[in-house]
Amino acid sequence: MAKGYWVCTGTIHTPLGMVPYISKFTAWLATVNARILIRDLSSDVREGSPGTVNVIVEFDSKENAIDAYESEGYQELIKLRTPYSELSLTITEELNE
């Protein structure tokens, strides 16, 4: 089965405001069997304007990634993040050839 991913890009406006989100998000990942593959807060952006934050989170499948995003637990976490950041999140899956 193909793995699922959250691809997150954007900007953090108030880094200290993100501390509660980051600590709770990190603990929450274990509850949905996910892990952070990439976390770069100062990416070298060469094209476009996605912001300098890049995070990729891996899940067992795209369905798991969707379920995790739609979960009550993550919906509550979004409320901790949005006042301090402007991020986009795309759910996708790996290429299996």
Score class of each variant (00 low, 15 high):
residue 89 L to F: 04
residue 35 R to V: 07
residue 25 F to C: 08
residue 67 D to V: 08
residue 18 M to P: 09
residue 60 D to A: 13
residue 70 E to R: 15
residue 24 K to G: 04
residue 73 G to N: 07
residue 80 L to T: 02
residue 29 L to R: 05
residue 89 L to D: 02
residue 22 I to V: 12
residue 95 L to G: 11
residue 56 I to Y: 00
residue 72 E to F: 13
residue 67 D to Y: 13
residue 56 I to L: 04
residue 72 E to K: 15
residue 10 G to R: 06
residue 21 Y to I: 08
residue 44 D to T: 11
residue 41 L to C: 12
residue 21 Y to R: 12
residue 44 D to M: 07
residue 49 S to V: 12
residue 26 T to K: 09
residue 87 L to K: 12
residue 13 H to I: 08
residue 86 E to M: 09
residue 16 L to Y: 11
residue 54 N to I: 11
residue 41 L to S: 14
residue 49 S to D: 15
residue 22 I to N: 13
residue 40 D to R: 11
residue 15 P to M: 04
residue 76 E to N: 10
residue 49 S to P: 02
residue 74 Y to A: 13
residue 86 E to W: 10
residue 30 A to P: 03
residue 28 W to A: 15
residue 68 A to R: 00
residue 68 A to W: 02
residue 90 T to E: 07
residue 72 E to W: 09
residue 12 I to M: 10
residue 86 E to L: 11
residue 27 A to Q: 09
residue 67 D to H: 14
residue 7 V to T: 11
residue 8 C to L: 13
residue 47 E to W: 08
residue 74 Y to S: 08
residue 9 T to E: 09
residue 51 G to E: 02
residue 32 V to S: 03
residue 41 L to T: 13
residue 96 N to K: 15
residue 44 D to G: 05
residue 86 E to V: 10
residue 50 P to T: 02
residue 62 K to H: 12
residue 87 L to R: 12
residue 87 L to T: 12
residue 49 S to R: 12
residue 70 E to Q: 15
residue 6 W to E: 05
residue 79 K to W: 06
residue 6 W to F: 15
residue 83 P to N: 06
